[in-house]
């Protein structure tokens, strides 16, 4: 038997129809001291992440690591196979005829970088994730069409349902809802 789950408040969500408003709300919310929050938008809004007080992602460094691995690993793989494990005389050339190894090294550099980019991006984003409490927001479908949402989460130390609702209502949102995590 399922035990009734302990349903808790996830946060308060406000819905807006303009990207300028969402930027303003994010900035003001950060100034007001809210930290655990997230904005949801149909298009990437430039500056929104900074407005929410976040730093640049480490993704490029991961990709650099992946690329380096592909490059050195690819070259070493060929070196080991063609020089150490099974030296093979082709047309009297030195066994370590490295210029001929460049194309494969290059392709493996790109392959490992690209794999790190895509897998890294989704992993850092915590995707795939079939369900997220934000989907409980009424009308949330429009976040993938033309509306902008901001959620101040219950985990925020300053979180208080009445205060947050009042704070968000100042910006004349389309709607403000309190959502639960289940």
């Amino acid at each position: 038997m399922f035990k009734p789950k302990n349903i808790q408040t996830y946060g308060v969500v406000a819905e807006f129809s303009s990207s300028d408003t969402i930027l303003e709300v994010a900035t003001k919310a950060h100034e007001a001291g809210y930290r655990v929050m997230e904005a949801y938008s149909p298009v990437p809004v430039h500056g929104l992440d900074e407005a929410l007080g976040r730093k640049r992602s480490i993704l490029p460094w991961l990709v650099f690591g992946g690329g380096t691995f592909g490059c050195l690993g690819g070259l070493f793989m060929q070196y080991w196979m063609a020089v150490i494990n099974y030296p093979w005389n082709v047309g009297g050339r030195p066994t370590f005829s490295w210029p001929a190894f460049i194309p494969v090294t290059f392709e493996l550099t790109i392959l490992c970088s690209a794999l790190t980019t895509v897998i890294g991006m989704f992993a850092l984003n915590g995707l795939p994730r079939p369900h997220h409490p934000i989907f409980n927001t009424p009308n949330f479908d429009r976040s993938t069409l033309d509306h902008y949402f901001i959620c101040i989460e219950a985990k925020d130390p300053k979180f208080n349902e009445q205060d947050v609702t009042a704070f968000l209502n100042e910006f004349k949102p389309e709607a403000v809802n309190t959502i639960t995590d289940a």
Binding site: E38, P44, R54, V63, S113, M121, F122, H132, F135
Partner: peptide, 28 residues
Amino acid sequence: SLGWTGAARHWHRYEIAYLLLAGLATPL
């Protein structure tokens, strides 16, 4: 869609990833 929500932090990494992929696909 892997449960895409359009969160700002997702878009942020998404845009970086897209730019990197474009930069990788070009020499490729």
